[in-house]
Write a protein that binds this DNA or RNA. Structure first.
Lengths: 224, 224
DNA sequence: CAATATCTTCCAATTCATGGGAATCCCCCC
DNA sequence: GGGGGGATTCCCATGAATTGGAAGATATTG
């Protein structure tokens, strides 16, 4: 993920330092020396904002109050003020964190990443497997090929999930039975056979491609 | 909003202090003296967790690593360790903030509220759901189809909200029961079935469209 | 106390899992 | 290259599991 970070500070040496740090970490950095410049850079839609409080012209707190409604990304205050009242004011005005100078670059970076991690988590969509145009959404229990949905039954989906998520492994029928059914296999593997057949039939019908490889005398494996 | 906060610290005087503070602020407070107690209290589904690092038995960092996957609420570390390495470890293990003792109650409260505010904001951005002409206002708990209001009961609305806000996921009946009722499901899931039926009947009547998909043998899912 | 919401129970309809046997395929040996 | 034996695939009828629906009991609310 390539994050965009907006740094607002009137101290050029600090913005330069931060720019270097976050560029090194793979961020796209935008820097402003005052509130009005910062306002223009908002159109870049940063994912997170570092905001100095003490600035000539409009200060950071006022800037934060102004944009808070329309900007949803986390805003972290950077400041030399250590008075508790100032901190509280920062949070009250909509800040998400308050970091006092001097701070360590490592801690600042860790905090920035913690906030971004949370943002991403809140947006997170479920994990999908994809290969050869076939897509499986494990949470939604959906399988589709180029947008076309393929209906699988419960056990069929369980088997596909098992094979696909361990696609470098060969599973014998007993292993599949025990994994999917959660029971000990007692020589009873014709069920697995039949399900493999049905899965193959459905996938072949939809994709013209056999995703399951038979390892003769051993078992089955998902083709990569 | 009545937030639920989980406090985990082995120092009874501190948990007592925090309990009083957050109770006064209108929170519902759960407190644990160690990790295993805390684990049990997770079923209360707290909105935020304050976690001491130094505890006998499993420490806070280990506890955090363990639950981070399954618990999405913010986790704030409270600790007397001020070494930078410790802070970085806290963030690395999935913490959202790191507060060093001694701290001021006012700042702690401000930080807690900043995190909760952000959580709410992230949810609120999807406070109005719309698809196929159906609109749900989660804050007002109102459902309507092309201006025509559809009356849902409390539990019915809870279920719709759960399914719709996680429309990429399949929920089995036990999961729905535990989420909506907040209780452990003991095989008793015909209630959920019946509520799903009622919701379907109401929506079908109003919209001529079935928004809930049955995943046979698994559960239910909101159609996208 | 009435109205509404929630929960329980039971049964029919549907879908899926299962197992057996026939047909086919694959590998090895000649 | 051809045949034999075992493993695999295919087909299909049956029965079990799951869901949807009706009706009524119980709890909650105003």
């Amino acid at each position: 993920m390539n994050w965009k970070i907006l740094i607002v500070d009137d101290e050029p040496s600090l913005t330069a330092l931060l720019r270097r740090q976050f560029t090194d970490c793979g961020y796209t950095v935008f820097a402003a020396n005052n509130s009005s410049e910062a306002l223009k850079l908002l159109k870049e839609q940063p994912d997170i904002i570092l905001l100095d409080i003490n600035m000539p012209g409009k200060d950071g707190l006022a800037f934060c109050r102004e944009i808070r409604e329309s900007v949803s990304c986390p805003i972290l205050f950077l400041t030399a003020r250590i008075m508790e009242q100032d901190k509280l004011a920062g949070f009250r005005d909509g800040g998400d964190d308050y970091i006092t100078k001097p701070f360590s670059l490592a801690e600042l970076t860790a905090r920035v990443e913690a906030h971004l991690r949370r943002e991403q988590r809140n947006k997170a969509s479920s994990a999908c497997l994809t290969s050869h145009g076939l897509t499986a959404d494990l949470a939604a229990r959906e399988l589709s090929f180029e947008g076309e949905s393929i209906a699988l039954t419960r056990k069929e989906f369980d088997i596909v999930e098992l094979l696909w998520t361990n696609s470098s492994q060969v599973f014998d029928r007993e292993h599949i039975y025990e994994s999917v059914w959660g029971l000990e296999a007692n020589g009873n593997n014709s069920v697995v056979k039949e399900h493999i057949r049905k899965i193959r039939a459905k996938l072949l019908e939809a994709t013209k491609w056999d995703f399951i490889e038979t390892i003769w005398g051993i078992g089955y494996k998902w083709k990569k």
